[in-house]
Amino acid sequence: MDWKVFLEQAPSGGMTYLGWLWSGLFWTIAVSACAWVIAFVAGSVVGVARTTPLAWARFLGTAYVELFRNVPLLVQMFLWYFVMPEVIPVAWGDWLKQDMPYLLRLPFAAQFSLWEFTAAVVCLGLYTASRVAEQVRSGIESLPRGQTSAGLAMGLTLAQVYRHVTLPMGFRIIIPPMTSEFLTIFKNSSTALTIGVLELTAQSRQISEYTFKTFEAFTAATLIYIAVTMTVILLMRALERRVAVPGYIAQGSTH
C-alpha cells in the first residue's frame, strides 16, 4: 500500500493525483446533477402523460419509455456522441463537434470539451427520464382513484386536479424511489468515460495507469462513491421527513 501516491504531482492539469480525483468527483457530480434536472422534468412530463385520460398522450409517453428503456445506456451514449452529429444537417453536426467546444472553457482541469459534457448530460438525462417516468406513473396510480373523482366532483379541471391533488401526494410517495433513481444516475454517469468525460471512475483508472497503484486508486474512488451515496441517502431522508403528511405514508417520519 502506498497512499502517499496521491500527493505526487500528476503529469497534467498542474495538480497532484489527489487533484485528479477531486476533478473526477466534480465532473461526476456536475454530469449527474445536470442530467438529473433533465430526467426529473422530462420524466415528470412523460409519467404524467401516461396517466392522463388522453389516448395520444398515453401513447407518446409509453413509446418514449419503451424506446429509452430497451436500448443499453452505453449504446445510447454512442448514438448521441458519434451518430447524432452525422445524421443531422451537416452544418449543425460540424457546429457541435467544432464550434461548441470553444463556447466555454470547462473549469477544473477538464481534459474534454463542452460537447462531450453536453452529450453525456443529454444522454443520461433522457435515459433516466424513462425510469423517472415509470416511478411518477406508479406513484400517481397508487393514489386511490377516488381522489381524482373527488377533485373533479368539486368542479376542478383535470389540470387543477393534477396540480392540487394528484401531484402533491404522488411526488411525496415517490421520494424514496426517486432517491434510488438519483443514485442510479450518479453511478451511471461513469458511462460518460466512454466518450472521453474524465469523471471519477475514469480518473481513478487514469491514476492507476500512470502510477501502477491500481489498488489505491480504485479504493479511493470507491470510498468517494460510498461517501456521496450515503450523503444523498441522508439528505433524502431529511427531505422525506420534512414533507411527510401526518397520518399518511408514515415511513421516514418519527411519530
Partner: peptide, 16 residues
C-alpha cells in the same frame, strides 16, 4: 458496497 459503486467501477475492480 457493490450497489454503491458504478457497474464500470466494479468491472475495473474485478478485472484487476
Amino acid at each position: 458496497l457493490i450497489r454503491a459503486i458504478p457497474f464500470i467501477m466494479a468491472i475495473f475492480w474485478f478485472y484487476f
